[in-house]
Nucleic acid binder design. Structure first.
Lengths: 137, 137
DNA sequence: TATTGTTATACTCTATAACTATA
DNA sequence: TATAGTTATAGAGTATAACAATA
């Protein structure tokens, strides 16, 4: 099972790269943007916990998104150790653009599966990684 | 879907590491051993094509397995450019040992899924990555 | 004492280009 | 000319340890 998950995941990963070519997006960055979009004001640590990214590795990723003007960091009022992350307008556009591109490509990849099979697959995968996730957002 | 595949795959990857701790095995190496085991005499390139590993990256991986005494390389009689790979006795033991460990751990990870759900998940994953695979062995 | 963010570091994985020897 | 294996190299992802500021 681990093997097949690994291979299927690799197929989607290279498809992601093809779908978002030219946008400078990567799977990790896209994941961060998504989490920040649905949880405005969330801290770096919490994003990392949700996505399985270590605090130390979140730093350069958050720097990258900040330097590109896709997110903004401000000191969290209730905890001055933490940064509150929010999407900028540009960040929202990039996220929206990528969601469209990825949706199209994923539809093509899943063309061989019926709608019922897709939903089933999605739910099974969720059940697998939900067990092991620190935080669910 | 790409996101959930990525996360589920990561869960199995870290479980693989835990299951095989101390054996020096990694997912890539294990994959190579498996393919060589079921296709004795296969060439490095063919292994790479089956597993999605580039020729250039196969070199150091095959070196590593050879230096550990898990596989043997011999010049292929019908094509002197290629190496024919076979498992050594030690390679078979390691593979067998890891298969046992991984089986146990995967059973635990999939405890929440019925037998029917596991088979379904496996078949759906196979159908996804079979489309994009160069070689099926 | 614990946690947030940070720096530094190292290892694995992956991707590309150029070389050699065989075909 | 095409392919198998090789070398060198660079980028991305991930993991750990140690530090400052704040809780």
């Amino acid at each position: 099972m681990g093997y097949h998950l690994r291979r299927a995941s690799a197929v989607f990963a290279s498809d992601f790269a093809a779908a978002t070519a030219g946008t400078g997006m990567r799977q990790v960055l896209f994941g961060i943007l998504s989490v920040v979009a649905t949880n405005p004001g969330i801290s770096q640590s919490r994003v990392g916990a949700a996505l399985g990214i270590q605090r130390a590795n979140m730093v350069s990723l958050a720097n990258e998104l900040t330097e590109r003007g896709l997110i903004e960091r401000s000191v969290a009022p209730e905890d001055r150790r933490a940064f509150a992350l929010v999407l900028t307008g540009a960040g929202e556009s990039v996220l929206f653009d990528c969601l469209g591109r990825i949706g199209q490509h994923e539809d093509a990849l899943l063309a061989g599966l019926s709608s019922a099979e897709r939903h089933l697959l999605l739910r099974l995968l969720q059940r697998i990684h939900a067990q092991s996730s620190e935080v669910d957002l």
